[in-house]
Amino acid sequence: MMKNIIFALLLLLFLVGCNNAEQPEVQEEEPVEEGVTEEDETEVPDESDTNTGAGTDEENEIPESDDSEAVDEQEIEVVEPTYELTEDWGLKPISEEGNEDVVLLTIDDAPDKRALDMAKTLKELDAEAIFFVNGHFLDTDEEKAILKEIHELGFDIGNHTYSHQRLSEVSVEKQREEIESLSNLIEEIIGEKPKFFRAPNGVNTEFAEQFVKEEGMLLMNWTYGYDYFKPYMDAEKLTTAMVTGEGPEVDVPYSLLKPGANLLMHDRDWTADALGDIVIGLRDKGYEILDPALIKTPE
């Protein structure tokens, strides 16, 4: 009987020992199974690498396509014109809902003296304008850099002929050269051709009118301006004349200021000094400064 008990105990100890010997092998398998999860986690940086250009071609094509489409949408965004030029050189809304109480600011003979100062003044006041330039003010790299900066500030650049030549006094070939050569130079400097044209002294010819239209530019004169008259070569007097529209010292005792007025100014010291007050004065009278981008031009 005692032998049977001893034998049973020995058998039990043998079985327990066998189980303990097999246990480490089972425990070694557990980290192997967990290792699959760790491998999955180590793939996360690889997926982020895919976003920066690593990974398969198919994975990379998706963000590239989306980005290019976004850029294309921005590039093709076009501002619809809401104003058009009138027969008397003013501006009016195309639709009845448009604001009639607007004025357009234009600055000729740039960049001669203070054009960049004038652009910065307008920028500070959030006021738009067209800078009509001459080629003989774009002879140097410094002058070209000034024009480029004016454009980068957000202002439209217009064609005012290369040498400020009165078009009615020269041949058709010369008229073409005066207009075309400046448009090409402007494109070379700012990357785009001008959309607006103004003839020196406001003198146009049949050829110039047709050629300008063919070049896709809007021919433009003005409704009033005073800074080229000697009595108004003074900032204070010029401010009063431009804001009221009156020029009694040059036989204009009545106001030329009206909705859609197209205001002529020049790149001059006295005009630059008066410009800020002119903008503020016109706004105080209830006029909005028109953005040239809203003006309809030839297609």
Rank of each mutant, 00 (worst) to 15 (best):
M1Y: 08
M2T: 05
N4D: 03
I5L: 11
I6K: 14
A8C: 02
A8S: 05
V16E: 12
N19R: 15
N20T: 10
A21P: 07
Q23I: 15
Q23F: 15
E25F: 09
V26M: 07
V26L: 13
E29W: 01
E33W: 07
V36C: 00
E43D: 13
V44M: 05
S48H: 13
E58G: 06
N60H: 07
D66T: 07
S68D: 09
A70Q: 13
E73Q: 14
V78T: 09
V79Y: 04
T82L: 05
E84A: 01
W89D: 13
K92N: 00
K92L: 00
P93S: 07
E97G: 06
E97P: 04
N99C: 07
N99G: 08
V103I: 15
L104N: 02
L104C: 08
T106S: 11
I107S: 11
I107D: 07
A110G: 09
R114W: 12
L116R: 13
D117C: 02
M118N: 02
A119F: 04
T121S: 13
L122D: 10
K123G: 06
D126H: 15
A127I: 12
E128T: 03
A129W: 00
F131Q: 01
V133K: 00
V133Q: 04
V133A: 08
D139K: 04
D139N: 06
A145I: 04
I146W: 03
I146F: 04
E149K: 04
I150P: 02
H151Y: 14
L153E: 09
F155P: 00
F155H: 04
H160D: 05
Y162P: 01
S163C: 00
H164E: 12
L167A: 11
L167I: 11
S168A: 14
E169Q: 09
E169A: 10
E169F: 02
V170D: 08
E173G: 13
K174E: 15
I179N: 03
E180Y: 08
N184A: 10
N184Q: 11
E188S: 05
R198W: 11
R198F: 13
P200C: 04
G202F: 10
E206S: 12
A208Y: 01
Q210K: 05
F211E: 12
F211Q: 09
K213R: 10
E214D: 02
M217R: 03
M220P: 03
T223H: 00
Y224E: 14
Y224A: 09
Y226M: 14
Y226H: 14
Y228K: 07
K230A: 12
Y232I: 01
Y232S: 01
D234S: 11
D234A: 11
E246R: 02
G247L: 02
G247V: 04
L256P: 02
L257H: 05
G260S: 08
G260L: 07
N262H: 03
D267L: 12
D267V: 13
T271R: 04
A272P: 06
L275V: 03
D277W: 01
I278A: 09
I280S: 06
I280M: 06
I280T: 14
G281W: 14
K285S: 15
G286R: 12
E288V: 14
D291T: 06
P292T: 03
P292M: 05
I295K: 02
K296Y: 09
